[in-house]
Protein backbone atom coordinates (compact mmCIF):
# COMPACT_ATOMS: atom_id res chain seq x y z
CA UNK A 1 0.00 0.00 0.00
CA UNK A 2 1.29 3.45 -0.87
CA UNK A 3 2.02 5.88 2.03
CA UNK A 4 -0.40 8.48 0.53
CA UNK A 5 -3.25 5.92 0.53
CA UNK A 6 -2.50 5.12 4.19
CA UNK A 7 -2.69 8.83 5.07
CA UNK A 8 -6.02 9.22 3.28
CA UNK A 9 -7.41 6.20 5.08
CA UNK A 10 -6.23 7.54 8.45
CA UNK A 11 -7.73 10.97 7.72
CA UNK A 12 -11.05 9.38 6.71
CA UNK A 13 -11.17 7.23 9.87
CA UNK A 14 -10.36 10.23 12.07
CA UNK A 15 -13.04 12.36 10.37
CA UNK A 16 -15.68 9.66 10.60
CA UNK A 17 -14.83 9.06 14.26
CA UNK A 18 -15.05 12.78 15.06
CA UNK A 19 -18.40 12.97 13.30
CA UNK A 20 -19.71 9.96 15.22
CA UNK A 21 -18.51 11.26 18.60
CA UNK A 22 -19.84 14.77 17.88
CA UNK A 23 -23.19 13.41 16.76
CA UNK A 24 -23.49 11.18 19.79
CA UNK A 25 -22.60 14.09 22.12
CA UNK A 26 -25.14 16.37 20.44
CA UNK A 27 -27.84 13.73 20.61
CA UNK A 28 -27.09 13.09 24.30
CA UNK A 29 -27.24 16.82 25.06
CA UNK A 30 -30.56 17.16 23.22
CA UNK A 31 -32.09 14.24 25.04
CA UNK A 32 -31.01 15.73 28.39
CA UNK A 33 -32.50 19.21 27.70
CA UNK A 34 -36.23 19.22 28.56
CA UNK A 35 -38.87 19.47 25.84
CA UNK A 36 -40.42 22.92 25.94
CA UNK A 37 -43.99 23.92 25.21
CA UNK A 38 -45.79 27.27 24.91
CA UNK A 39 -47.94 28.44 27.78
CA UNK A 40 -49.68 31.63 28.96
CA UNK A 41 -48.70 33.22 32.23
CA UNK A 42 -52.13 34.18 33.63
CA UNK A 43 -50.59 36.93 35.73
CA UNK A 44 -49.29 38.68 32.59
CA UNK A 45 -52.20 38.02 30.25
CA UNK A 46 -54.03 41.23 29.31
CA UNK A 47 -57.06 39.44 27.72
CA UNK A 48 -56.48 41.23 24.39
CA UNK A 49 -58.35 38.64 22.30
CA UNK A 50 -55.43 37.81 19.99
CA UNK A 51 -55.30 34.19 21.18
CA UNK A 52 -58.56 33.70 19.29
CA UNK A 53 -57.37 35.28 16.04
CA UNK A 54 -53.67 34.52 15.75
CA UNK A 55 -53.39 30.79 16.45
CA UNK A 56 -52.58 28.67 13.38
CA UNK A 57 -55.42 26.39 14.46
CA UNK A 58 -59.06 27.30 14.04
CA UNK A 59 -60.51 27.40 16.61
CA UNK A 60 -57.52 28.37 18.69
CA UNK A 61 -55.64 25.94 20.94
CA UNK A 62 -56.05 28.51 23.71
CA UNK A 63 -59.03 27.82 25.96
CA UNK A 64 -60.52 29.26 29.10
CA UNK A 65 -59.62 27.40 32.28
CA UNK A 66 -61.69 27.70 35.43
CA UNK A 67 -60.23 27.36 38.88
CA UNK A 68 -63.07 26.14 41.08
CA UNK A 69 -61.09 26.72 44.26
CA UNK A 70 -60.83 30.44 43.45
CA UNK A 71 -64.38 30.89 42.11
CA UNK A 72 -66.95 32.56 44.35
CA UNK A 73 -69.84 30.61 42.70
CA UNK A 74 -71.64 33.94 42.38
CA UNK A 75 -75.16 34.40 41.12
CA UNK A 76 -74.17 37.69 39.50
CA UNK A 77 -71.07 36.30 37.77
CA UNK A 78 -69.01 38.88 35.89
CA UNK A 79 -67.55 36.17 33.65
CA UNK A 80 -70.93 34.73 32.67
CA UNK A 81 -73.28 37.71 32.51
CA UNK A 82 -72.98 40.75 30.29
CA UNK A 83 -72.49 44.03 32.20
CA UNK A 84 -75.89 45.20 30.88
CA UNK A 85 -77.65 41.86 31.45
CA UNK A 86 -81.34 42.33 32.09
CA UNK A 87 -81.64 39.15 34.13
CA UNK A 88 -79.54 36.65 36.03
CA UNK A 89 -80.42 33.62 33.98
CA UNK A 90 -79.21 31.54 31.07
CA UNK A 91 -80.94 33.68 28.43
CA UNK A 92 -78.68 34.16 25.40
CA UNK A 93 -79.15 37.91 25.59
CA UNK A 94 -77.67 37.91 29.11
CA UNK A 95 -74.63 35.75 28.41
CA UNK A 96 -71.27 37.44 27.99
CA UNK A 97 -69.68 34.58 26.03
CA UNK A 98 -70.56 35.07 22.33
CA UNK A 99 -70.24 31.32 21.70
CA UNK A 100 -72.19 30.25 24.81
CA UNK A 101 -69.19 28.22 25.98
CA UNK A 102 -69.96 28.65 29.69
CA UNK A 103 -72.56 26.46 31.35
CA UNK A 104 -74.28 27.79 34.46
CA UNK A 105 -75.61 25.22 36.94
CA UNK A 106 -77.58 25.92 40.10
CA UNK A 107 -75.92 24.38 43.17
CA UNK A 108 -77.86 25.72 46.14
CA UNK A 109 -79.20 29.12 46.97
CA UNK A 110 -77.40 31.43 46.18
CA UNK A 111 -74.55 29.48 44.58
CA UNK A 112 -74.03 28.66 40.89
CA UNK A 113 -71.29 26.62 39.23
CA UNK A 114 -69.75 27.68 35.93
CA UNK A 115 -68.23 25.11 33.57
CA UNK A 116 -66.32 25.76 30.36
CA UNK A 117 -67.48 23.83 27.27
CA UNK A 118 -64.08 23.44 25.64
CA UNK A 119 -65.42 22.60 22.18
CA UNK A 120 -67.25 25.93 22.03
CA UNK A 121 -64.51 28.08 23.57
CA UNK A 122 -62.49 30.09 21.02
CA UNK A 123 -60.05 31.56 23.56
CA UNK A 124 -61.21 35.16 23.14
CA UNK A 125 -60.86 35.87 26.87
CA UNK A 126 -63.97 38.03 27.22
CA UNK A 127 -65.11 35.96 30.21
CA UNK A 128 -61.61 36.27 31.68
CA UNK A 129 -61.95 40.05 31.46
CA UNK A 130 -65.35 40.06 33.18
CA UNK A 131 -64.22 37.65 35.89
CA UNK A 132 -61.04 39.63 36.55
CA UNK A 133 -62.81 42.97 36.79
CA UNK A 134 -65.70 41.91 39.03
CA UNK A 135 -64.83 38.49 40.42
CA UNK A 136 -61.90 36.62 41.89
CA UNK A 137 -60.14 35.97 38.58
CA UNK A 138 -60.96 32.26 38.59
CA UNK A 139 -61.31 32.21 34.78
CA UNK A 140 -58.07 32.46 32.81
CA UNK A 141 -56.56 31.40 29.50
CA UNK A 142 -54.21 28.46 28.94
CA UNK A 143 -52.81 26.70 25.88
CA UNK A 144 -54.37 23.23 25.68
CA UNK A 145 -51.55 20.86 24.83
CA UNK A 146 -53.74 18.12 23.42
CA UNK A 147 -54.67 20.67 20.73
CA UNK A 148 -51.53 22.82 20.36
CA UNK A 149 -49.13 21.84 17.58
CA UNK A 150 -46.28 23.57 19.45
CA UNK A 151 -44.92 25.65 16.57
CA UNK A 152 -41.31 26.69 16.91
CA UNK A 153 -42.40 30.28 16.55
CA UNK A 154 -45.87 30.54 18.06
CA UNK A 155 -47.96 33.04 16.07
CA UNK A 156 -49.87 34.13 19.19
CA UNK A 157 -46.67 34.62 21.18
CA UNK A 158 -45.41 36.89 18.39
CA UNK A 159 -48.61 38.97 18.54
CA UNK A 160 -49.06 38.94 22.34
CA UNK A 161 -48.84 42.56 23.57
CA UNK A 162 -48.02 41.65 27.15
CA UNK A 163 -45.35 38.95 26.64
CA UNK A 164 -47.57 36.49 28.47
CA UNK A 165 -46.49 33.56 26.28
CA UNK A 166 -43.63 31.54 27.70
CA UNK A 167 -41.72 28.38 26.86
CA UNK A 168 -41.99 26.05 29.83
CA UNK A 169 -40.96 22.40 30.33
CA UNK A 170 -43.49 19.93 28.92
CA UNK A 171 -43.36 18.05 32.21
CA UNK A 172 -45.15 21.01 33.83
CA UNK A 173 -47.09 22.20 30.83
CA UNK A 174 -49.72 24.37 32.56
CA UNK A 175 -49.45 27.49 34.71
CA UNK A 176 -52.47 26.84 36.89
CA UNK A 177 -53.76 29.63 39.07
CA UNK A 178 -54.92 27.33 41.80
CA UNK A 179 -51.30 26.40 42.41
CA UNK A 180 -50.25 30.02 42.56
CA UNK A 181 -53.02 31.59 44.53
CA UNK A 182 -55.16 30.71 47.43
CA UNK A 183 -58.71 31.90 47.56
CA UNK A 184 -57.99 34.42 50.26
CA UNK A 185 -54.64 36.10 50.15
Amino acid sequence: MKPTENKRRRDFTRGALALLVGGAALSAARSRSPKLVWQIDPEQCSRCGRCATHCVLAPSAVKCFHSYSICGYCDLCGGYLRPDAKGRNTGAENQLCPTAAIKRTFIENPYYQYTIEEDLCVGCGICVEGCSVFGNGSMYLQVKHDLCVNCNECAIARACPSDAFKRIPASEAYLLKSDQEKRIG
Binding site: G49, A52, T53, H54, P83, P98, I126, G130, V133
Partner: peptide, 17 residues
Protein backbone atom coordinates in the same frame (compact mmCIF):
# COMPACT_ATOMS: atom_id res chain seq x y z
CA UNK B 1 -53.14 36.28 6.76
CA UNK B 2 -55.14 35.84 9.97
CA UNK B 3 -58.70 35.15 10.70
CA UNK B 4 -60.83 38.26 10.73
CA UNK B 5 -60.80 40.38 13.86
CA UNK B 6 -63.32 39.48 16.52
CA UNK B 7 -66.71 41.06 16.00
CA UNK B 8 -68.57 43.54 18.18
CA UNK B 9 -70.04 40.81 20.34
CA UNK B 10 -66.52 40.12 21.63
CA UNK B 11 -66.06 43.70 22.88
CA UNK B 12 -66.04 44.22 26.63
CA UNK B 13 -66.52 47.79 27.69
CA UNK B 14 -67.65 49.47 30.88
CA UNK B 15 -67.18 52.96 29.48
CA UNK B 16 -70.87 53.87 29.68
CA UNK B 17 -70.84 53.15 33.42
Amino acid sequence: SRRADLGKSFDYSLDEY
